[in-house]
Design a protein around this nucleic acid. Structure first.
Lengths: 143, 143
DNA sequence: CTTTAATTAATTGTATACAATCTAATTATA
DNA sequence: TATAATTAGATTGTATACAATTAATTAAAG
């Protein structure tokens, strides 16, 4: 048996599974405020930058317009963002957080702590995990 | 600004993004043999166990029947697995790898190495990553 | 100044994911 | 043993993801 093709020897599989499981931990908290996980991380960017075009938003979130276009329309329909073309370059769609969108942030402030409480790893493990994951992301992005 | 709600301070986000990016690295290799990533990890289990019911397969893959049922039907239509009810308990659907499914393994043997070559982390980083991710998965599964 | 190239979103098509519900089969229990 | 509870998959509905293509706009080249 080829050991390299055993599921337990893959690094990608626990990454894939852990990612899904942690996203799932967010679900009940996010349901209270009618956000999905992807909508939540999108709002996280919006709280920070207030306004951004789809391209740059996609770079930050590692998502393309195929995912973002319908998602942003949904956030717009909920009143959390506005979508407008940039007059100086009509190709760009500028997403801008609304007052109502900003108010969401306050309702989310306890969520990271709640989820972190469900994931019992040490501070050191978390820091190393963080570093390695960003190293991976950096490697790939340069391609 | 609440620093806990900054995207860059989340542990879940790089996990989510890195998982997707690595899955994306597999895509071109898997396309050659007409498998998706999820189908690939499913076949990985099948190569190991030869035969398993949907419930246990789901436990191994962290996937439920909503995902697995259509996926297994697709693998069946490609001729890589067979699906049959267990006669002693008709609730159980037994998935069994076919000859053709086993032959796939040989065509996949270089894939892990190819993908690993695209992810430039040290052996030590990979080992720590592996441990931490399984620790997270273990924590969550106990709930 | 016009034709071509490049850029940005949107669209289309396929494949997950997962919660919630449903159905059939089996087990437990009164 | 009749019925309730449990279990295993399948189904339904919603929301991603992403490759590939298209459309509209802008920039660049000749």
């Amino acid at each position: 048996m080829n050991n390299e093709l055993k599921l337990e020897n893959q690094i990608c599989f626990p990454l894939y599974a852990a990612s899904k499981e942690i996203v799932r931990l967010y679900t009940p908290y996010l349901k209270d405020i009618d956000l999905t996980y992807t909508q939540y991380i999108t709002m996280m960017v919006m709280w920070e930058v207030k306004e951004i075009n789809v391209k740059e938003l996609g770079n930050k979130l590692f998502l393309d317009s195929g995912t973002l276009t319908p998602l942003l329309k949904k956030l717009e329909s909920k009143g959390y963002v506005e979508r407008n073309r940039l007059s100086s370059d009509e190709r760009n769609l500028i997403v801008k957080v609304t007052e109502k969108g900003l108010e969401l942030q306050d309702m989310c402030k306890n969520i990271p702590g709640c989820v972190a409480g469900c994931v019992n790893i040490t501070k050191e493990e978390a820091e190393n995990l963080y570093k390695t994951l960003y190293k991976i992301l950096g490697n790939i992005k340069e391609d």
